[in-house]
Design a protein around this nucleic acid. Sequence first.
DNA 1: ATTTAGATATGATATTTGTCATGTTTTGAT
DNA 2: ATCAAAACATGACAAATATCATATCTAAAT
Lengths: 225, 225
Amino acid sequence: MSKCNQCIIKEFNSLKSLSKEELMGISGCKTSKFIKKGEIIFEEGETLKGVYCVKDGICKLTKLSANGKDQIVKLVVKGDLLGQRSLISDEAVNLSAVALTNMEVCFIPKAEIFGNLKNNSDFSMDMLKQMANDLKESDNVVVNMAQKSVKQRLAEALMYIHNSFGLDNQGYLNVVLSREDYASVVGTATESAIRVLSQFKKEGLISTSGKQIKIENMEGLKRIE
Amino acid sequence: MSKCNQCIIKEFNSLKSLSKEELMGISGCKTSKFIKKGEIIFEEGETLKGVYCVKDGICKLTKLSANGKDQIVKLVVKGDLLGQRSLISDEAVNLSAVALTNMEVCFIPKAEIFGNLKNNSDFSMDMLKQMANDLKESDNVVVNMAQKSVKQRLAEALMYIHNSFGLDNQGYLNVVLSREDYASVVGTATESAIRVLSQFKKEGLISTSGKQIKIENMEGLKRIE
DNA sequence: ATTTAGATATGATATTTGTCATGTTTTGAT
DNA sequence: ATCAAAACATGACAAATATCATATCTAAAT
């Protein structure tokens, strides 16, 4: 069993506030899991028995809307925790998590997290900060959804992925989404997302190679209205 | 100076997890403030020096979008705290707070809140729970904004206000919003909000008396597509 | 290599929503 | 009580977006 206190991943999330002893405790009860692209980590409505620490790979958090369409609420990468919100509220999960690439995650049981929240105020403060940040971002997304056009939202989604998830060695976005997923991120019909991406391509703002997308003119994307 | 441990309001928020001594500490440093309808409590970008506990009245939390329109992100009532998110993130506030009615609020300095977060794990756990709940609701709003029509969103806004803020003695919604505010809640043009409300009225789903709105057919509103 | 389901693309059209113009009503200040 | 400003209302039209149809491309399975 690999040791949490030697794991670099923890530096990217609240677990960094835990002591060596507390991390040893987690090492002792965590389990490691490999998840294939497309597989479901958990589904809306499930009751979670712990949180997942993402060691490698990328997944999407989605919510099924009343009209039957999935909406992507967030993209989660290496270093993020999954399921804390649900655990803290002591409710069924509000979102589904689906792997966009092959993933490696560590599962940490609920009791362990709660114990640390109770005894380590730095940890709970860090968790609070993380949650506060998620809330701010979610509020910002609400405003964008309500006030911006599909074109703007898609341009911003591309820039967000560019800035947050980086590029491969040929300059393509590291996160590869289907057109349907792009539609689901910006909240529009798949055909609309395809049309806008085609337009961006015509205008030289992006280029593509299969599913892969490369931003060619960041300033142009910023100027989209 | 009135005493926090005798104040019923605290039962509705995280302050209920504080001990009598901790509440006395807050009583000693809090200040009470009356705010008139339409006045700004704080504005996006400001740095807060504490949180506000809403003793009476209702306010809206808004965010200015790039196109210059205000978006109402949340309605806040008696019992809620204002400004915790910003305080915890140690950042400028993300949202503006504007009174929709005359209000009475208590201002509690930052240091007092942080001290209690550090020393009282029940308090920080409760704060975490509150934040987790806000996050869930915000995520749900994102999905609604992205996937539902203006008509649906407005119907839901009316039902939300009905269920969460109650009615006056004649059955009108307790929260009275201008048409512009309704537009800002659902993220649409003021004229569109007016049109939809007029249509609801024609269909007998609601009735109005000036700005006041009464839901006449809850089931009908639920069925809106 | 062939097949085939799924993804991407695009045209035609319908629907929704926004914008501008204009008139009416309500509200608040004097 | 009167007046001005703001809020409300509605028509006409424009723009954005969704839907439906259909064609092409791609990738995985045999």
